[in-house]
Write a protein that binds this DNA or RNA. Structure first.
Lengths: 145, 145
DNA sequence: GGATTTTATTTGCAAACTGCAAGTATGCGG
DNA sequence: CCGCATACTTGCAGTTTGCAAATAAAATCC
């Protein structure tokens, strides 16, 4: 019971390494945070700056600069919203989508490898457990203590 | 199946927030990385610099400076090894132990809260699953691709 | 409608973090 | 002793960070 923290620590550390390992695609390579930003822009439908910054729990000013960097790399496009000209809508460029997809693929390959050490039942149980854990973390509202 | 990455992403993100929330103890507060360093020094028995740096996957030079910072804060003590005077043995000071314990307590409280949304069976299953997942990640050797 | 306040984003710092290359000091194998 | 490997530190230069302050565009109040 007491080692839950430790197991979680190990899993997050390993998953962090995994993510870090998957930040290079051919010529372009991004930082870990930038990889997460690409991922979230891809997931959320035409999000604003705030939305992504909030999702990732990062300071908006830091985020603003990260986006500038990603725009310089031509991976992200920023368009002023028609509805509210204060907000900027983010989306991935074609190259950004390509990079995000390639990263996704690498990570999926890793995950497949990891789960290959389990039988179907275990795999199913683990995935179900992760979802349950995540749901309970969400209920507890850990992020905004 | 395809959303495993996403669930893991969310869990690690939330656990990261949780860790970050637990970096202040009374007067002293440490950074997230420093919290992890304290944790690992506490766990491993009189480790060397290398050992902890390796465990956390961080550059030894960066680590060296983090340790300097923690020594300045009087949370860590560094003693040259008797066996090999190139090596420095790390340990927590009394205050360091206190801080580590306080952080541990806060995190445990959060975890208790999180698991309070599950019944005994679910809790057991989840913990078992995390251990299995961690073991499979270890087998895959994700960290040193 | 104009003044005031709120909201979304950007810039100016100054501090912290990062990693590579080079340095110091110790150990080891001949 | 000499040369090489190892453990750690330091110099530097680039990146990241977050707070405070600026801008600019809603939204609200009168």
């Amino acid at each position: 019971m007491e080692d839950v923290r430790h197991v979680l620590q190990l899993i997050t550390r390993r998953f962090g390494f995994l993510n870090k390992n998957c930040c290079s695609v051919g010529g372009t390579s991004v930082s870990l945070i930038q990889s997460h930003i690409l991922y979230e822009i891809d997931r959320q439908h035409h999000p604003s700056m705030q939305q992504i910054a909030e999702t990732l729990g990062m300071d908006i000013t830091t985020f603003s600069r990260q986006i500038q960097s990603l725009i310089r790399k031509k991976l992200v496009k920023k368009t002023p919203s028609d509805l509210d000209r204060r907000v900027y809508i983010l989306e991935l460029t074609t190259e950004g989508k390509f990079v995000a997809a390639a990263i996704e693929q690498q990570i999926q390959d890793y995950l497949t490898q990891i789960f290959s050490h389990m039988n179907e039942f275990e795999k199913d149980t683990v995935i179900r457990s992760l979802k349950l854990l995540n749901a309970c973390m969400e209920k507890t509202g850990v992020c905004c203590g």
